[in-house]
Computed example of a mutant assay.
Amino acid sequence: MNLTSRRFGFRKSFTGVLAALSLCWGALAPFSAAHAQDKTCALVLMHGKGGAPREMSFFGRKMEPPCVFKSVEMPWSQRRAYDQPYPVALQDIAAVVKEYRSQGYQRVLLVGHSFGANAGMAYMATLGDADGVIALAPGHSPRHMYNANIGRAAVDKARELVATGKGSETLTMDDLNQGKRTSPSMSAETLLSYFDPDGLGDMPTSAAKFKKPVPFLWVIGMQDPLYRAGQAYAFDKVPAHPHSQYLVVQAGHLDTPDVAAAQVLAWIKALP
């Protein structure tokens, strides 16, 4: 082959490479746009009392796609055992919401089971910057416990200690979780933050204080003790939103997330 033919071959090869690159870019451009558009739904998952993040991760995988998720270990997990007060728990949630916002997600939903549902509502009543709440078998009712004289003495003592600047002192109290009693120890400040009947843990109070109307999905099983309280207990107190729903499923307290997963995903997909 002479020099001229070699040059021609090089030009032809180089032209082919450019054409290939052009085709690749044409294929990649719409993919990138579609990938950016996929960032429409992110879930912050919160487990129940004495639970662990992995329990909610199983639920989160059923929401993929269209949603990504992060399961957060809350202070009421079995491992942490109330090591931080409720306001710190809400800041832990806020950090994940902020992280998702920085990544460009257009909708950040709070999804909690039992005490985690309680936290989602408390978050909307205090910080209020999420785009919706999914409350799965909501739980933790400090007002019911107090009125039933379960842990009342400890709550009263905690209130006294906090008022006199001794909130760091440790107290032990009776805790109730689906009919089972435990005796956790924690600081007076922490105890009062979770078990004050008029505090952050009271779901009817939190419901009425949502910072803004957002889609709110309350999912309750017919075998759940809270089912008897009905919509008036807390759901009706949340600011009205056209996409809010009170969903009843054939389940108990623990299996509600699994039983309702398909319906929850359908609800998410139906959001505008």
Rank of each mutant, 00 (worst) to 15 (best):
C24H: 05
W25Q: 10
L18Y: 09
D38K: 12
G26Q: 07
D38G: 14
W25H: 08
C24V: 13
H47F: 03
A27I: 11
A42M: 11
R54C: 00
L28H: 10
A27S: 14
S22E: 12
H47A: 05
K39R: 12
T40H: 15
L43S: 00
F31G: 13
G16L: 14
G26S: 12
A33Q: 05
L21Y: 01
V44A: 04
A52D: 03
A52L: 12
L45R: 00
P30R: 14
H35T: 14
K39S: 09
S32Q: 11
G26E: 12
G48E: 07
L43N: 00
A29I: 05
A42C: 05
Q37E: 06
K49E: 07
C24R: 06
L21V: 11
L21D: 01
S22K: 02
D38L: 07
P53R: 01
W25S: 15
A33Y: 13
L43K: 00
P53L: 02
L18F: 13
G16R: 09
A29M: 05
G51P: 02
D38P: 03
A52P: 00
S22P: 00
A36W: 04
L45V: 10
T40P: 01
M46Y: 02
V44N: 04
S22M: 09
Q37W: 10
H47N: 03
H47M: 05
K49T: 15
Q37D: 14
M46H: 02
G51D: 04
T40Q: 07
V44C: 10
E55Y: 07
G51F: 03
D38S: 04
G26T: 06
L23T: 04
A33S: 15
H47E: 02
V44Q: 04
A36E: 06
E55S: 06
S22W: 14
G26K: 15
L28S: 08
L28V: 05
C24K: 03
L18Q: 11
F31R: 13
S32N: 10
G26H: 05
V17A: 09
F31T: 09
P30G: 04
L21F: 11
H35Y: 09
R54F: 06
T15M: 13
G16C: 08
W25R: 13
E55W: 02
S22T: 09
A19Q: 07
T40A: 14
G16E: 10
K39N: 05
A20D: 07
S32E: 07
A33G: 08
G26V: 08
G50Q: 02
L43D: 01
Q37R: 06
W25G: 13
M46R: 03
A52V: 12
R54W: 06
Q37V: 06
F31I: 07
L23N: 01
G48R: 05
P53A: 04
G50I: 01
S32I: 05
W25N: 11
L45N: 00
G16M: 08
G48K: 06
L23D: 01
A42E: 08
S22H: 02
K39W: 03
G51R: 04
